[in-house]
């Protein structure tokens, strides 16, 4: 962050806060995360400033929406980075930003699924994940602060999913018989309407942080929207998000422990058939995303080895879809 932006930020912060350190954190093609250290009355505060990349035409959720999601989740008792301040005034650092408390811990999926002790051990961590999901799902469409989220259409969530994915495939314009087979299977087996709740929509290992004792926070809220609670449970349990681990719940621990903790915290039964339905849906959704990333490379608009390799994830997803549906 150049001197002018940093000075703008320093002037915007309440008088008692002075900036003692700022460093760009890794990752994020669309968003930037800055490690921000401030001192107020002799007390150090560890924060993260999240903003858009300058000169990025952002199609992702605006920072103000992401901030509102974090506020709602925090108020519902979900472990998240506490949202502290939001600034949509472009005169301060040139882009909208918000500040949240910095969490300790690691998010690296490959390390988490291989560790017997991180997050307090497999059973403890899986139970925490179940409780975190149960708390997220207490947030309902009546929430005025989340009025910016598209209302859920008047159809079962499974049918909404099939309709959305077919629309994506039609826009891409490349015939995908295996993904069509999977979607047709889902269409024929869609669970009946369930209560509509806030779904995180990217709740998987790699998108939460843990330390040695437990879950420290759920990250990456940009895909959140209204849906069926089983969508999040299925996304977490899908084979493609186990990172090669034999443990069915997020590659971390047993599925039964996840369900038990979720049921205990929510007082609602988990429908195993519905979770399995959403695991197939998760596999299809990840394949559709991976295909669109590979197309960004192949079209020549954004040559990238990483995007090209993402396309080679698709066959394994297609095989999982066929094994689950035939």
């Amino acid at each position: 962050m150049d001197d002018a932006r940093r000075a703008g930020l320093a002037a915007w912060l309440p008088d008692s806060f002075s900036i003692v350190g700022m460093a760009l954190m890794s990752g994020g093609a669309i968003q930037q995360n800055w490690q921000l250290d401030v001192v107020a009355d002799g007390t150090p505060h560890a924060w993260v400033l999240r903003t858009d990349q300058p000169a990025t035409l952002s199609h992702s959720r605006p920072r103000a929406h992401e901030f509102a999601l974090l506020q709602e989740a925090f108020a519902a008792g979900v472990a998240v980075p506490e949202p502290l301040m939001l600034c949509t005034d472009l005169c301060v650092i040139g882009t909208p930003f918000f500040i949240m408390r910095r969490l300790d811990g690691i998010a690296a999926a490959h390390r988490i699924v291989r560790s017997e002790s991180l997050g307090g051990g497999r059973l403890a961590l899986v139970a925490e994940l179940g409780r975190a999901l149960a708390r997220i799902h207490t947030i309902r469409p009546a929430s005025a602060a989340l009025a910016f989220l598209s209302p859920h259409p008047n159809m079962p969530a499974g049918m909404r999913f099939v309709t959305e994915m077919r629309a994506h495939l039609d826009v891409a314009g490349v015939a995908q018989p295996i993904l069509e087979w999977g979607l047709r299977h889902l269409e024929r087996h869609a669970p009946a309407s369930a209560e509509i709740v806030l779904c995180h929509n990217d709740f998987r290992t790699g998108n939460y942080m843990v330390d040695q004792t437990g879950l420290t926070g759920v990250l990456d809220w940009e895909f959140a929207g209204w849906g069926d609670k089983h969508e999040d449970l299925g996304w977490l349990c899908a084979r493609c998000w186990r990172f090669g681990s034999p443990h069915e719940a997020g590659g971390v621990g047993p599925r039964a422990a996840l369900y038990a903790a979720y049921e205990d915290a929510s007082g609602q039964r988990v429908d195993d058939d519905a979770v399995r339905f959403w695991e197939i849906a998760a596999t299809i959704r990840w394949a559709v995303i991976a295909l669109s990333q590979a197309r960004r490379h192949m079209s020549g608009t954004e040559p990238s080895l990483e995007l090209a390799l993402t396309g080679h994830i698709v066959p394994e997803l297609e095989r999982d879809i066929m094994l689950a549906t035939s």
Binding site: I178, W181, V314, S326
Partner: peptide, 11 residues
């Protein structure tokens, strides 16, 4: 279904 599974396996 078998043909599509074989296709996925070949890929």
């Amino acid at each position: 279904a078998q043909t599509l599974l074989e296709l996925a396996r070949a890929r």
